[in-house]
Design a binder for these strands. Sequence first.
DNA 1: GCATATCCGACCAATTTAGTCGGATATGCT
DNA 2: AGCATATCCGACTAAATTGGTCGGATATGC
Lengths: 126, 126
Amino acid sequence: MKISKRAEYGLMAMVCLTKNKKTISIREISNIEVIPYEFLAKIFAKLESAKLVKAKHGANGGYVLTKASNKISVNDIISALEGNKKTVDCVCCQRKTKCLAKDVWAKLEKSLNKTLEQVKLSDLIK
Amino acid sequence: MKISKRAEYGLMAMVCLTKNKKTISIREISNIEVIPYEFLAKIFAKLESAKLVKAKHGANGGYVLTKASNKISVNDIISALEGNKKTVDCVCCQRKTKCLAKDVWAKLEKSLNKTLEQVKLSDLIK
DNA sequence: GCATATCCGACCAATTTAGTCGGATATGCT
DNA sequence: AGCATATCCGACTAAATTGGTCGGATATGC
């Protein structure tokens, strides 16, 4: 039950992006936040395919947010970066044994999403 | 952001224990729930040191709950079994960079605990 | 056309997770 | 007492995941 470095770095980078407003390159973010460059590049690839950021190739290029920072939630970012969507894929369910444990995991995931949904990027730069 | 098999099996086993009321051996639970015996034994070792179950050695031995099933929450079980207490140990905090991300993780953990705390073992056998 | 960017996939090392094995210890039953 | 049945305990291992690296292709501004 741990958040990955990928997600953690991703959030840091997104906050960094929010602060800057302008296009900023991975190289710069990598320097500012002390995140391994290549790793950060992969993170941004995912953020882009989730349409949270937009790339600009070539010199003076980099990334910008696609939306206003108060329209992007932490949940958007985490879900884009965490590979495993489900917190549990319940073994007992696969077995067709009636099991209320499933409901616990569903509830857990729901409350998790809700909590992260409430926090917007704009809340993190104050 | 995934619950471990250890925790999942642990919850299943605890539900099993709740249903039975009497002392039941790991071997039996292992058969009923189709959980590898040796692995389950290790899970129960942890549950015991968290004082959620009590062991009885020797023939006709096994485990029993130490408390009423409505006094044991899913959170008790999960925390006993999940090694990593913190969902994130924030890199930016170690760097003394002011960072509001930390608050997000704290909030996340809090809501997680709260959600799991609300569900008692007794709720899962209805 | 060159420097600066993103893009993309293969690769790798360290850690964690899930599971195994062997044996010690405790206890009920005949 | 002796045996079967339990928990207990630590070392070990295989597979998966995570965090990170490398090389090169593609796009763009100056």
